[in-house]
Design a binder for these strands. Structure first.
Length: 130
RNA sequence: GCGGAAGACUGGAUGGCCGCGGUUCUGGUGACAGAAUCGAGGAAAGUCCGGACUCCCAAAAGCAACGGUGCCGGGUAACGCCCGGGCAGGGCAACUUGACGGAAAGCGCCACAGAAAUGAAACCACCCUUGUGCUGAUGGCGUGCCAUCGGGUUUGCAAGGGAACGGGUGAAACGGUGGAGUAAAAGACCACCGCGCCUUUGGCAACAAAGGCGGCAAGGCAAGCCCCACCGGGAGCAAUGCCAAAUAGGGACCGCGCGCGGCGCAAGCCGCAGGGGGGCUUUUCCCCGAGCAGGUCCGGGUUGGCAGCUGUAGCCAUGCGGGCAAUCGCAUGGUCAGAUGAAUGGUCAUCCACCGUCCCUGGCAUGCCAAGGGCGGGGACAAAAUCCGGCUUAUAGGUCUUCCGCGCGC
């Protein structure tokens, strides 16, 4: 019982490991792809070629427009938490996601709304790709 | 009690759920999993000074240039920092502010105004002398002019001289006030004050006090150049070292070739000359040119990883001792982030500060204060990036200590 539950949770997690984007060229490629704007953030999504990497990859960007270092760190942490809770269930394998923070709203909006907005944004992106 | 001065501290708390980065241990061939433990600040900020550390310039000394500092003494690894003192401003006081060396080394500037802006000179006014207008007497005649002699008390003009007190200008005018003096006056003279010099005393010193002398000759700006004293080579952890990948424009050696002289068959060696080596000089020392059709070896930029990377000029806690203090010495114990698209959190609940508003109670100088309750808002400035010592700037609110002035009571 427990083991089967664990297996069901583990199997997709193994095939869809969520890793972090670290290279500047990856961000630049994602910036040219499709994007959806929400009140708290902007989401970009790019379908990778198969040879590049495995699993879901996600990156976070908060420019100086967001504020000083404290404000940028807080915005980035909330975006990271949203992605961590949502992407393993709803993300598509082989895609790069980039979340961009916005001045004020990313740190101020209620956390529930941020999550709902992210689900909505993913639905729009995935629907458009078909 | 009110008002003020100086200094120190704090920078929300607790809990639930879900996460992140080191280190150690356990399991596993390994990817990894689990457990334990640690995980931002007083400014982590600005990157403004001083160092440690690393590499580069061939080394040392001197000079020049450039940059910095600038009362004195102490502290420190060092500083432009800190402490104590002096001097000068501010404050009734506690206390506080200060690019605070040199203006008789030199250059430059000081607008406007004013007579004059620095070896002084003299516009108005003042005083003296002389002449004259003027005026008196005598004489002449063309009766209001001329000549001669005299006067200057008052007044006008001119010339020469005295003096630099007064006026006026200015930020500033070759000391200030008073006296005596004179034709009028002036440090020309006298007293006190200021200034300069000398001596003595106190102090390690900056400096202060006292006494004497000089008669005053010496305006400000050095944050304009400058002079004097002291300090400083440059770049910075994206330093620097190592490994791997992928590839050429690079380098070294060999070969051909190569200033002069000597030795030698030759290879080569020695000497001299020349050139190069941080701005210059000296000394010491090092290197040897240009070219290629070749051969062999090494390997740059770039990307990734590892080291540097956190343990010490330490820091923290407690105690003792020296010192007015900054701080120093000793003893014991502890040792506390090391990320790199960058961890140290996300979210929810309750509480504690704080703000706004409403209700009720009390006080009175009738719109304020104090206590209680309800509702709403809501956490200051700001996050390590090689590491230390400082400075500067930002900071909601709260806490504590010492001191000063005023009022009241004893």
């Amino acid at each position: 019982m427990e083991s089967s539950d664990a297996d069901r949770d583990m199997l997709p997690a193994v095939s869809c490991v969520v890793s972090t984007l670290k290279k500047r060229p990856d961000f630049q490629r994602a910036a040219r792809a499709k994007r959806v704007a929400m009140p708290g953030f902007i989401v970009q999504m790019r379908k990778r070629a198969q040879s590049e990497a495995n699993g879901i990859r996600v990156g976070f960007t908060c420019s100086k427009k967001v504020g000083n270092a404290v404000a940028r760190n807080r915005a980035k942490r909330r975006l990271r938490e949203v992605a961590r809770l949502t992407l393993p269930k709803l993300g598509q394998d082989g895609a790069d996601y980039v979340l961009i923070g916005r001045h004020g709203q990313t740190a101020a909006l209620p956390f529930d709304q941020l999550q709902q907005d992210f689900c909505k944004a993913l639905k729009i992106l995935h629907g458009r790709r078909k």
